[in-house]
Design a protein around this nucleic acid. Structure first.
Lengths: 342, 342
DNA sequence: GATTTAACCGAAAACGTTTTCGATTCTTCA
DNA sequence: TGAAGAATCGAAAACGTTTTCGGTTAAATC
């Protein structure tokens, strides 16, 4: 059961491989008649071009790489869905790798993708990534690179993000608007830009409203696989250390849900005793009790947009007209639910 | 910035391409000295073998294809995670496609993967798949194929599943054990084997316990993107048509959660008025209120196992010792939670 | 010193495709 | 009728690697 090649079609029709190739690709210098014959035979023999050979010849694989910190994650799996849906439209395949929030793995995986010679790379950084030489390596090879969500400002490539700072400001302002006076923040890991920005948005909202910023009210969580547990842990800690807190802005919904679970267990009423705003709008947030106020983060759209940008850059480089990096900011919105409904 | 090739290394060292290639792959007929020189230069030049050429020569791509009905789905994203974690260990990359529960798309995607010449294919069938010629096409080409979760019994390939019938029996028996007398079932779509098996398990449990089987108590949902809504809709319908039902076994957690939401809205108490058992053990089920009794379905393990099996078959075919198909059944367990705690 | 053996290296073919460029045939028109 | 032009085709090189097999040199053996 050897796969059919151009050669076999050529031999059966007593013409050259060249002509067969050209006929199948509708070159103008092949007669209608031969084109017909070739295409017919190709169909009956179920000819499929050998991608390996095509890739070698054309130097492109119509494949892109995607590195993502975690897969089992409402936001990220929506991003994946957005990416592959868009990629499919353009005839691209997507190789997915999970960095597990590890810088070392991320580095290895980029090496892997580069040696695999994908046409471009999409990445959302691991929490642990502080050094960016592995990313610059991609750019040095003139391979398109687009970062999304968890980005590094310093790297010179296109980015698709939301305005985390503004969104966090909005979330915090909402807590203030409903009357919270002492607002805590469960922030993400220290390095990622988005958790920094969300923290800054929180802080700025406090100060703009003449509320004191108290660093001891800021709790850190890594937001890895253990997000839920971290939320519980931080909530427990908060109740011990600061029983006067009446609102919390939490870096991500899963952590918020962990915290809510702990509060429920301890009989702390939401939103009466403590109001909570999460981040990301996980589906779960709309079905738990009380439902969780949160910031909508458009994962599917972000994936789509990121691929579109990558695609443009792939085309641009192919035509030897590389484009300057572009930063695309998507809209977000506050979703008000029961956890802040006093 | 052309990528480095064997030829360039060869020229710089004044040796042949052959020797360079062999040196890098530690052939015994290359002297230690030249091996040293070659490897060193390869490293300083940052040589990466051109995968396109290697693939063409070796006829394998170290890449597998994965077709899955939906990505944004707790169970399936766990499967994906399992697959790529295991694939990475063996040096394989995974191309992921989403069939969107569409037979047509599934067919196209298989064509795509075959023409991409992946080394093997993993698939969980779409709800709409009733014809299997596209799957047999894979087998005819002697490409390893492993199905998981949503399988077709008739196709002669390896499968990784759980014992859906037994698990459903267990779930239903549990409802009976806690005293339910009139138990409804929200089943999945008509075609997929697993929803058939779960239905059969439900039915058998009823009959074994001398409870009448009433077809009007079986509601269908497609379990696609709208699972949650379908759960709500079916719950609403059930309340209208059968207000004597005191237990429901529901095909999947997301549908169950939709139903619970509807019951909550209508003031129907769970588990007092109606006890509910779901299926799959989505994370969500442990944080909603009341927490949902369900069947644990080991997605991560299923992914790992499916890849392992595929890998074995890839190796076997390579050594021209193809193995007969194997059906692997993974364990499940009933997770008792509040939705059945009377 | 001659012969065998081992150690080391390289030429060349092959994988299947794409594309350039030259060759051939067929039209067309003066 | 002859030449120019159009239409059609194919030879060959190229992409970068792997592997077979034969060749050369050096070491070992008698």
């Amino acid at each position: 059961m050897k796969p059919v090649t151009l050669k076999e079609i050529a031999e059966q029709l007593n013409i050259s491989v060249t002509t067969v190739s050209k006929a199948l690709k509708d070159y103008p210098d092949v007669s209608k008649k031969t084109k017909g014959l070739v295409k017919e035979l190709a169909k009956t023999l179920n000819y499929k071009p050998n991608t390996f050979a095509v890739n070698l010849r054309t130097k492109e694989s119509k494949t892109i790489g995607l590195i993502i910190p975690v897969i089992v994650h409402h936001f990220f799996s929506n991003v994946i869905k957005g990416i592959i849906s868009q990629a499919e439209k353009k005839g691209y395949l997507v190789i997915i790798l999970q960095s597990n929030e590890s810088y070392e793995l991320e580095k290895k995986q980029i090496d892997l993708l580069l040696s695999q010679r994908v046409d471009g790379i999409l990445i959302s950084l691991a929490n642990g990534t502080a050094d960016f030489s592995h990313l610059n390596q991609i750019i040095d090879q003139e391979k398109p690179l687009v970062m999304f969500d968890k980005i590094a400002k310093i790297v010179k490539c296109s980015k698709v993000i939301i305005d985390d700072r503004k969104a966090a400001y909005l979330a915090t302002q909402h807590l203030i608007d409903i009357g919270c006076k002492r607002i805590a923040h469960f922030r993400g890991a220290l390095l990622p830009q988005n958790s920094i920005d969300r923290f800054l948005g929180y802080k700025k909202a406090l100060l703009d409203n003449n509320l004191p910023y108290d660093p001891s009210l800021v709790y850190i969580c890594e937001c890895g696989d253990m997000s839920f547990e971290e939320g519980k842990k931080n909530a427990k800690q908060l109740l011990i250390e600061h029983n006067d807190v009446d609102g919390i802005f939490i870096n991500t919904d899963l952590v918020a849900i962990g915290a809510m679970t702990e509060f429920n267990n301890q009989g702390v009423k939401i939103p009466e005793d403590i109001s909570i705003v999460g981040f990301s709008n996980w589906f779960m947030s709309s079905v738990i009790s009380p439902t969780l106020t949160t910031i909508d983060q458009p994962g599917f759209k972000m994936g789509k947009t990121a691929f579109k940008q990558l695609y443009k850059e792939i085309k641009a480089i192919k035509n030897e007209k590389p484009k300057p990096p572009k930063v695309i900011t998507l809209d977000t919105a506050l979703i008000e639910r029961e956890s802040t409904r006093k």
